[in-house]
């Protein structure tokens, strides 16, 4: 498991709509509809606090097998939307 730490981008606006979640990035002016998994991951990240991947996986209740692949995919898509930032 990577020890990379992740932090929510500052200033994001988030709303839960039924089973879904939408996020607005004021800096980029973009809006994203998150999958339930991505929304759960975003919910784990407190504004201004960086969290490492192992802790994220634990909080999300991900199984040990294949965890890296699944979590890595979610983190990568959130990072490419600039909703989270990695910190070493």
């Amino acid at each position: 498991m990577s020890r990379r730490r992740w932090q929510r981008t500052d200033g994001l606006q988030q709303r839960t709509l039924g089973q879904e979640c939408v996020v607005f990035h004021p800096g980029a002016g973009t809006t994203h509809l998150l999958t339930p998994a991505a929304a759960a991951l975003m919910d784990c990240l407190t504004a201004g606090v960086a969290m490492d991947e192992a802790e994220l996986a634990r909080q999300l209740g991900l199984p040990a097998d294949g965890t890296d692949v699944e979590l890595g995919r979610w983190l990568s898509s959130l990072q490419s939307a600039d909703l989270i930032r990695g910190r070493h």
Binding site: Q13, R15, L17, E20, C21, V22, F24, T31, L33
Partner: peptide, 28 residues
């Protein structure tokens, strides 16, 4: 679903980008 309805709604908003956060919460 409300989330995808929201996304379709903002795609049809003329001044969503100009209003920014206020439009996001209003459409939400």
């Amino acid at each position: 679903a409300a989330g995808s309805g929201f996304m379709q709604l903002i795609a049809n908003a003329f001044n969503y980008a100009a209003l920014g956060t206020r439009a996001f919460h209003s459409a939400g």
